[in-house]
Computed example of a mutant assay.
Amino acid sequence: MMKDQLRDFIDRVSEAKHVSDDDVTMLQGEILQGGLTSRIEVESLLALDRIVDAAESWGTALTKLVVDFVVWGRAPHGVVSNDDAFWLATLLEISGPSPNAMSIAYAILDEAGYVDVALLDFIMRGRQQARLSQIAA
């Protein structure tokens, strides 16, 4: 289930096609002060990330919100299970390994005590794609 305030935020930002610093402050301070509480909220914010331009603060906030949910909001704490890693890697892969998607994956790798190989595979594919892009340029 998604909070009504978060749904309203996503609708408004989607229409504006931009996330401002003020939007990020509102998201962190008022709408999601307790963090993300469900996969649908994570999925919605990652979908939003793919369709809007955003202030620099957005990537940092999005990364923190997703990491806190995946690493610390799910039991057992500090462990990213196969199910969670596969789910998240699939979401992050949708439009290719964007800078925010890679930032989220690396932050989870840094913070979790254990990360299933599904997320590590996403990181490796993203690094390989970045190297191929540099060679082609």
Rank of each mutant, 00 (worst) to 15 (best):
D4V: 06
D4P: 00
R7S: 13
R7E: 12
D8C: 00
D8I: 07
I10N: 00
S14L: 04
A16Y: 03
H18N: 05
V19G: 01
S20N: 04
D21I: 15
D21H: 09
L27Y: 09
Q28Y: 01
Q28D: 00
G29C: 10
G29V: 14
E30R: 05
L32D: 06
Q33F: 15
R39V: 14
I40W: 09
E43F: 08
S44L: 01
L45E: 08
L46R: 07
A47M: 12
A47H: 02
L48I: 05
R50E: 11
I51T: 09
I51D: 06
V52G: 05
E56N: 11
S57K: 09
S57D: 13
G59E: 11
A61Q: 05
A61D: 08
L62E: 10
L65N: 04
L65D: 02
V66L: 05
D68G: 00
F69M: 03
F69P: 10
V71T: 04
G73F: 06
R74Y: 06
H77L: 04
H77V: 14
H77M: 11
G78I: 15
V79I: 14
V79K: 08
V79S: 04
V80M: 05
D83K: 05
F86V: 14
F86M: 11
L88F: 12
T90E: 01
L91N: 07
L92R: 05
I94F: 02
I94Q: 02
S95R: 06
S95T: 11
G96Y: 10
G96C: 09
P97K: 01
P99H: 06
M102W: 01
M102R: 01
S103L: 14
Y106S: 05
Y106C: 09
Y106K: 07
A107R: 05
I108Q: 07
L109I: 07
D110P: 03
D110A: 13
E111R: 13
Y114A: 12
L119R: 03
L120S: 02
L120N: 03
F122V: 03
I123R: 06
G126M: 10
A130Y: 12
R131H: 04
S133D: 10
A137Q: 12
